[in-house]
């Protein structure tokens, strides 16, 4: 029996935090690729400490719905899941290349496949692009557009900046957008000066965050100048210093993120049948035909 456990941060204050986790779990359930799909949280229930005891299967894939490799994926989650013998070297990662480690979870005395986070998987670049399609409502968006991928800088987590740069570079190589830039919230190049970094009249701004919350709904819109105060709201697109900014909100809310969760499990050996194709198809942006 094959089980998927999606682990995410959650929140004591904001119900939107767990919404993408539930949405992607539902998308994956609908594919039937797993006998069960469970969700566990740091700040909600079931907690990381107790989620595995709710799992029935014997082939268990744990996928962290987190943006980067770091404190949560390397310390908190393995500790709270009680993965015996975990050491970050199990992933043999350079900060971007975590794949999976198979370890016994002492809570249930069964092996689990502990996968790398969703945010650093190569398929996340597709989700960023899909997010740009969603927010512009144009499945072919790219020509005449710039794309800004935004996240924390190295101040909070060195790997956070690495992930942003990695995806920005990969998308740039596709020559789909006129320009692709990685911008940061707490270091140069800063998202506050977005129009200075782009020549394009239209720029899609995609924050590399899992869920909408303080950073994506208050911090970034105010820093970029989409609004004076987030409570006023803003339009999409909103013109700032002559640049039309298409603010996408957290990339993790894009339905295609479910595909990356599946990719992580597949990389760890899960048998998914046609689920990957199914999810890519069912989460597409309508072409308007």
């Amino acid at each position: 029996m094959q089980s998927l456990v999606i682990v995410a941060h959650g929140s004591h204050l904001n119900p939107e935090s767990s919404a993408p986790t539930y949405d992607h779990a539902d998308t994956i359930r609908a594919t039937g690729a797993f006998d069960e799909v469970r969700t566990g949280f740091w700040k909600e229930e079931p907690h990381f400490r107790e989620v595995l005891r709710t799992v029935e299967g014997d082939e268990i894939y744990v996928v962290p719905l987190f943006i980067s490799e770091g404190y949560f994926t390397e310390q908190v989650i393995p500790r709270e899941l009680r993965l015996a013998g975990w050491d970050v070297s199990e992933w043999g990662s350079d900060g971007l290349s975590a794949d999976q480690a198979t370890l016994v979870a002492e809570d249930i005395d069964r092996e689990v496949h502990y996968c790398g986070p969703v945010g650093t998987h190569r398929a996340m670049a597709d989700v960023i692009v899909r997010r740009a399609e969603s927010v512009t409502d144009d499945p072919d968006v790219g020509d005449g557009f710039g794309l800004a991928v935004v996240g924390h800088g190295t101040e909070r987590n060195e790997n956070s900046a690495k992930a942003i740069e990695y995806h920005a570079d990969r998308i740039a190589e596709r020559d789909r957008f006129d320009e692709v830039k990685a911008l940061y919230m707490d270091e140069d190049p800063e998202v506050d000066d977005l129009p200075e970094h782009f020549e394009s009249d239209d720029v899609v701004l995609v924050p590399l965050f899992i869920a909408d919350g303080y950073h994506t709904q208050e911090d970034i819109p105010e820093d970029v100048g989409l609004c004076e105060d987030h409570t006023e709201g803003y339009d999409v697109p909103e013109t700032v210093d002559g640049t039309r900014i298409w603010y996408a909100g957290a990339v993790g809310t894009e339905p295609l993120t479910a595909d990356v969760v599946l990719e992580r499990a597949a990389d760890a050996g899960a048998d998914l049948g046609t689920a990957l194709d199914d999810v890519r198809e069912t989460t597409r942006v309508a072409t308007g035909d």
């Binding site: 107790e50 005891r53 709710t54």
Partner: peptide, 9 residues
């Protein structure tokens, strides 16, 4: 969540 699992244990 997990109340049945803990009750069972």
């Amino acid at each position: 969540p997990a109340t049945v699992a803990n009750w069972h244990r």
